[in-house]
Design a protein around this nucleic acid. Structure first.
Lengths: 172, 172
DNA sequence: CCTTGACCTGAAGTTAGGTTCAAGTTACAT
DNA sequence: ATGTAACTTGAACCTAACTTCAGGTCAAGG
């Protein structure tokens, strides 16, 4: 029951439902660490499973490894995190999930009315472009979860350079 | 009002809220096409905006370009798609969104109870690994939208090759 | 005619989150 | 002592959905 039992990477990976390569990758990214045997092999304490579980749960909520890394950084450095520590970290997920759910619900409802009226991609449709006015579209999409969002006000920007304002009409 | 007014790529892109490079990319992927001027420049009819709106809406629902491409392939080849055509395509999105919403809701509710009991990553938590048994985790995750899912039963597989069965216990 | 902004192509680069490979080393059961 | 499964590393590769770049062409106003 003492934590002197250290597990090799394959064992930990298997129990966490991850590939060993993923654990090495996480280590490179600074999300986890391991002690080493004299021969250089990684050994993990059992509570690493908690950390890995947290990482997976966070990913499922839609957080990037970057965000997860930041969150993990707020854990106490020298003592083993308590359940309260983990709970604190996961508390903020709720809002995120609420937002995601709200966004998808809005999208669904918009879609439903579109199907009802057959207006998809015609004027007055929340899901799509008005007939001739640019990009007022996407009103619903703003509520979408980050991982689901594409091409709307993303930092990879779709009309940020030249040709943003083309000619006949602007951004409406 | 006749569709002899053909728009250049910058114009169409701007109105659709996309980058010209995205349109060229879609063309390479076979999602759209364009007529060309004698000089080889692309010209798009106005109703291309519908198609682009569809593509964006579909992406927002979480479909990949591959899936969208398949869907577009079911449109009538020689006539201009009607609103009914577009509505048919988008009808199936509803189920998808319903599933996504249900999945996120389940995840949120699981999270809420986890926060309540402080059990995150301990036994009996729907969001995380049981203390010592591998990967029964993910039950909730299966309901997650494709774009949000990672590392659970994805085709990029996390323990599919060797070391799937490590030692002390299997997949539970 | 001439300028200039928009357009063309193919190839390469980008980000995220890993996986796969090659070549070599370690750990442990027998 | 030894066989072999599991481990090590760095580098290259992977998918998706694009963007960026280089080098060159087109279109339209004046």
């Amino acid at each position: 029951m003492d934590n002197t039992d250290l597990l090799p990477i394959g064992e930990i990976a298997s129990r966490a439902g991850l590939a060993p390569s993923a654990l090495r990758y996480y280590e490179r990214r600074g999300l986890i660490s391991a002690v080493r045997t004299s021969g250089g092999q990684r050994r993990y304490p059992r509570n690493m499973l908690r950390r890995l579980a947290f990482i997976r749960a966070a990913q499922n909520v839609g957080l990037s490894l970057q965000e997860i890394s930041t969150a993990l950084g707020t854990l106490p450095a020298q003592r083993t995190p308590t359940t309260a520590d983990w709970a604190r970290l996961s508390r903020s997920w709720r809002n995120r999930l609420d937002e995601q759910i709200a966004g998808l619900t809005a999208l669904r409802d918009g879609l439903t009315s579109c199907i009802g009226c057959g207006c998809l991609s015609l004027r007055r449709c929340r899901l799509s472009n008005p007939n001739d006015k640019a990009a007022s579209y996407g009103a619903g999409a703003r509520y979408l979860p980050h991982a689901l969002r594409r091409s709307i006000d993303a930092e990879s920007g779709q009309q940020r350079s030249r040709n943003a304002r083309s000619s006949t009409n602007g951004l409406a």
